[in-house]
Design a protein around this nucleic acid. Structure first.
Lengths: 226, 226
DNA sequence: TGCGCTGGTGTACCCGGTACACTATGTTTC
DNA sequence: GAAACATAGTGTACCGGGTACACCAGCGCA
């Protein structure tokens, strides 16, 4: 590796990073993907995956790349969340972080630590470890956004695999809202959305009546309700 | 002024700016504050007010400062919008811009060009001039956000002075939504919000019955409905 | 065959949103 | 001072979406 040559500017530039809050549902709980930092600052502390923006890379691409490099996670629903830039949020230098949040069904997520990450693991949102930087703030903001979007978008479908049963869909909402929902009302609502259609297949699992499978009509799109 | 000394980093850093989309209501129309750029690139072209983040300055402070420096506008409702960072959006160097949007009653806005701005002026949103950089995208995003927030927040009150009549409030909504609203239904809705209270004063203006004045109960706060 | 488990279905009520028209009270004019 | 004018201010009926609520269906297994 050649010696790094310095990059100079007439006025000081902050560093720009992206950080990604990836949510999934595992073990009937909302969980978040964290990495254990391998390098200072906060070496050994859990943190959101993320890292420095390449100079010729778009923000969205940076988020996707850092997520893949550090955790092995790819092809998830990724959406810009908010930009955190408080002076002093990184002890090394001025860092402005463009935060993203991501959703994916647990099935699609083959997590493996890579790169700067000493480890990568899932944590229940209600049992997070101590976090590096201002990542607790970022996570709180991401969680708030996720809950708000439940109301007026089909974002929750991103937590399910391609085909799913109405029971599974209801479980997603119940877990996210931390509330029990009436089965009949939920099914009426879900079918009235006109966002899902029966595949014609059924899933038999366990000693009971098989469940019809559904898929999104508008594949892989988050649409806005009302 | 001493010769600028260079600031050097081991890897290239993008520049970070803020850009601010300030909306107000003037002449019964939604208007946007633009400056005419005094320097290249895009010298002479209209653009959003904004500029480079100081290295020891928070993002919100940067937005407020740049707005005041370039247009004289202060003490407005300011909210982070979205971060635009596409490669090539600025021909000089890589620039990541944290966009804000702002709202204020026309009365409070004494606009005067300053600094890098050759001129500052209001434009109707439906008659914008050609714009520098990707500022047309930023404005479209800001406008979308503003309309979306009408539904579920009291953000529109930021376009009114401290006291106002229900007729004025209705005009705000009618202008923003570009639709006529039923007076009785609107008043029922507005009063049921429990966000405003009568001051006890009236305003007499024109040859007709005077209108009761109202103010926000929760002074200067944007609250979320539902 | 009967028990356990999840899948699947309909009806009544309530409340918020909407459609809709007239009276009240001030100023101006003749 | 009477009439014209302009905006302020008010109530009721209907509709639709959201909510509460209980039973039968079909599969596996003991």
């Amino acid at each position: 590796m050649s010696a790094p040559k310095p990059h100079c500017y007439s006025h000081p530039h902050p560093a720009v990073t992206t950080d990604i809050a990836v949510f999934t549902l595992r073990e009937d709980a909302l969980q978040l993907l964290l990495i254990r930092r391998g390098n200072p600052p906060f070496a050994g502390t859990w943190a959101l995956p993320g890292g420095f923006l390449d100079i010729d890379e778009d923000l969205d691409a940076c988020a996707a790349r850092e997520l893949a490099e550090e955790t092995g996670v790819q092809d998830v629903y990724l959406e810009q969340l908010y930009t955190f830039g408080t002076v002093g949020r990184d002890p090394r230098e001025r860092v402005v972080s463009v935060a993203y949040f991501a959703l994916a069904p647990a099935e699609r997520l083959a997590v493996q630590a890579g790169d700067d990450a000493a480890d990568a693991a899932w944590f229940r949102l209600d049992a997070l470890p101590a976090l590096a930087f201002d990542h607790a703030d970022i996570i709180a903001t991401a969680h708030r956004r996720l809950l708000a979007k439940l109301d007026y978008s089909t974002i929750a479908f991103q937590l399910l695999p391609e085909t799913f049963t109405l029971g599974e869909l209801q479980q997603v909402y119940e877990t996210l809202l931390d509330a029990e929902l009436d089965k009949r009302n939920f099914r009426k609502w879900a079918l009235a959305l006109a966002q899902i259609e029966a595949t014609g297949e059924v899933r038999r699992r366990g000693s009971h009546r098989p469940a019809r499978l559904y898929r999104l009509t508008d594949r892989e799109r988050v649409t806005y309700l009302r």
